[in-house]
């Protein structure tokens, strides 16, 4: 209770403090740097990729890394670096978009439940409890089978799974914040619940939300890669790191680089996100537990 009051009173200095603490955490900074460069590369890929996405060279075939093809080529003579760059666009996009979907649903759901309280809260959180118990991994596989492997559906399906914890965190935050004077002041000024939630509650609960968001992105990316590896996620001609790993695993005996480099791209990104998430958690001093 007391730290939250303190944080609220300090205003912006919370962020300055957090940034000062984060700067001391080398691993988190490394994660932030790596992630920023991966995102930049992904955004600029169509302009900076060394080869065209669909450029094949069947005569060349699979070659190990060389000066012309830094990470080698696959069995169709396609440049692996180019493949990884384009695959990264999809993998990162799934990570960010699905997390954004989860964030939007979770924060809204949790804020309403926490703000309105009473019976509405009980019903809403009961629904979350029931959904928590559902085996979602199996459901996503089912969805992909029934409705075909469509990228938009993948975003929505993963996002729809990951919002539950976000809703619990947000509700907990709102419940504590709701009783504070600045919210009472806002109510007595005649602001509507929607405005209070948007202008006063969400900004004050940002810390835990940011931390949890950073930790959701890697688990979403892992889920996408898992599905793509099984052949139930991203489909050619699109590619993603999970799909590249799956192809690489098939031919790893002859062409191990086709497995190693996409694997490194995914693992490094997950490392970066986890380090950054852990660092942010320490910097913002948020309790780990969701409930």
């Amino acid at each position: 209770m007391t730290d939250i009051t303190l944080q609220a009173e300090k205003g912006t200095s919370l962020w300055e403090d957090a940034w000062r603490r984060l700067k001391k955490n080398r691993l988190a900074l490394f994660g932030l740097g790596l992630l920023t460069s991966f995102v930049l590369v992904a955004l600029l890929t169509p302009w900076i990729a060394p080869y065209a996405y669909d450029a094949q060279n069947l005569d060349l075939g699979a070659t190990p890394p060389s000066s012309a093809h830094w990470l080698g080529t696959d069995i169709f003579g396609r440049d692996l670096l180019t493949q990884i760059m384009y695959g990264g666009r999809i993998s990162l996009a799934v990570g960010f978009v699905a997390t954004a979907v989860a964030l939007l649903i979770g924060v809204t759901w949790g804020a309403i439940a926490g703000y309105v309280g009473g019976r509405v809260d009980a019903v809403m959180m009961r629904i979350v409890d029931i959904l928590y118990a559902l085996p979602f991994m199996i459901f996503i596989v089912l969805l992909m089978v029934v409705f075909g492997r469509n990228l938009l559906l993948l975003f929505l399906a993963i996002g729809a799974v990951e919002w539950l914890t976000m809703a619990r965190i947000m509700r907990g935050q709102v419940q504590t914040l709701r009783k504070q004077e600045f919210v009472e002041a806002a109510i007595s000024l005649g602001l509507g619940p929607a405005t209070i939630i948007r202008r006063h509650l969400v900004p004050n609960a940002l810390g835990p939300i940011i931390v949890y968001t950073t930790l959701t992105i890697p688990s979403v990316m892992l889920l996408e890669a898992f599905l793509s590896f099984l052949g139930l996620g991203v489909q050619p001609p699109e590619t993603s790191w999970g799909l590249l790993i799956s192809y690489g695993a098939e031919t790893m005996e002859e062409y191990p680089w086709l497995l190693l480099f996409p694997g490194m791209a995914l693992t490094l990104t997950l490392f970066a996100l986890n380090f950054l998430g852990d660092g942010l958690r320490d910097a913002l001093d948020v309790r780990r537990s969701a409930d």
Binding site: P218, A225, G242, I245, A249, P256, L259, T267, L270, F271
Partner: peptide, 13 residues
Amino acid sequence: CMPTFLLGPLLVL
């Protein structure tokens, strides 16, 4: 950070 579907093939390799 090392997904199962990467660790498995790497161990096999």
